[in-house]
Amino acid sequence: MSSRRDALRTLIRHPEFSRGARDMVGVALGIGAWGLVTGVAMVKSGMDPWLAVLMSLTVFAGTAQLATAPLIASGAPIWVVWATAGCLNLRFAIFSALWRPYLAHLPRRRRAAMAFFAADLNYLLFMRRFPEPKPAPEQIPYFWGGVLVNAGSWHLLSLVGIALGHRIPAEWGLGFAGTVALIAMTCSMLSERATWLPALVAGGAAVAAYALPLKLNMLVAIAAAVVVGTVIDHTRALQGRAAR
């Protein structure tokens, strides 16, 4: 037991732990706003507050919670709820392929714990900090430092949202703060690589395919980004060969 406590202390005292936490603080405001909005939306959809608390703490996937809370409240069949949550979470399955080279060497229980907490922003910040897909000891404290701030601000504000519920008017536009956080995140990725065309195409595809059921427009958009990006890669490779 004490060796586990020592391991935890070593993890928290590692300089990369606080670096991971600091990097996440920049977007914590957006995460918190999303959490607040999700908490409010779950209660406003008619869900029992205690069930909303249970959902927030165990599901830990904002978009899936936002989309399924009205389904649950309206008594939709369980499989429809699960299918919707699954489709919205499919992007995480894609991210997990990119996580694998960093985490594959760890024991499975630790992999499972890290996978559960590996949300969107954890992924984005981690990949920016460690662009090369190779495991390194400082990655683990960096990851958990980010999780502390990400999951912490998410859960705290989502519980506040559940508690306040109907007292927060929709026209405050709190959800927009979460969207702006994602915009800032996208800008930071665009400046690093020439990925603006895949991003634009994906955005257009998401709007065009919006009417699809189960939020499948997300998948259409991701597929569009991957296809456009791959085509650009290949065209560049061909041009490079031609120039030589």
Binding site: M127, F176, M189, A202, A206, I222, A223, A224, V226, T230
Partner: peptide, 20 residues
């Protein structure tokens, strides 16, 4: 596909933002 997947995160972000 492994190569192309690095465009997936930006696609997912754009797909969440654009409809909003």
């Amino acid at each position: 596909l492994r190569e192309g997947l690095r465009f997936a995160p930006i696609g997912a972000l754009a797909a969440v933002i654009a409809p909003e």
